[in-house]
Amino acid sequence: MGKGVKGMARETLLTLAILSALLGTVIVAQITGEGFVITLATKVAIFALAGVGLNLALGYGGLVSFGHAAFFGIGGYVTGILASHAGAGTAVTTLPFALMGSNEMLGIWPMAMLAAGAAALLIGALSLRTSGVYFIMVTLAFAQMLFYFAISWPRYGGEDGLSFYVRNSFPGLNTLVPVQYFAICMALLVLALILSAALVRSRFGLALQAARQNEQRAAAVGIRPYALRLVAFVISGMITGLAGSLYADLNRFVSPAMMSWHMSGEIMVFVILGGVGRLAGPVAGAAVFILLEHLLGGVSEYWKALLGLLLLAIVLFAPGGLIGLVLRRDRHV
């Protein structure tokens, strides 16, 4: 059991290599003036961030959440709602206290994470009463509940979604310049990676993984899986919520589609494609996904069928994901 020190070092190296490749792509694109590539890379960073959030619950905690789009969407909607109120100069609510809109990212992010975290606390507290396949379906169902709520609540656009015209601002940067917005997203991704690497090696992370590998044994040494998993689930939801906020700003648009179960599936695909429980798994997964979408999308309008076949092949023949293929010898336990 466990990856040796050497295996860990190799994985860290690979993580750095993947991040450098993403950064290098953007630098080359900036020099050659290909703004579209920078936007694609920004999308990769944002989706990777969402995946890093899910990976904490799924990879390290063994909690197969099929409802992370809920947190992604909540992060997005908080951003959209605050920005649209700031644009109109109205208050979001006056009860119990006056909450004004905002177009400052530094103010929006904590709100988005707080809202996503609160939702994760509620959904997690209920869902963690179940396990296994029930957990998968229950998280899916709760996400679907929020999806239908977003559709049937007309105040913020309902089915049509909500757009806001100016990207929110960040002190000292012009967020509308693609490469500057990419830098923000990339920095947050790196921060999240550092945070999850630290979490995984902390007492908390070790206990979480122990509870995944053998619940009875963990319980026998005094670890309470429920509380542990709930905390992991909430942190996971908050990170994915932050990614949702960035995604909303990227498109300057939020819609119920951000909460749809396809989105949950895609976030899951980023994690599994890259490698479950691998630090850089979601980054590799998101990058390959966006690349495939871009390349196959040019070949055929039915590219999703090809993507499906590819996914199928990976599940059946390379269960460790892409990172597992590269680091074949130190298999993740």
Partner: peptide, 11 residues
């Protein structure tokens, strides 16, 4: 179950 979910999602 994770593999099952992903494979049937692909289907």
């Amino acid at each position: 179950h994770l593999d099952q979910v992903l494979a049937t999602f692909a289907l």
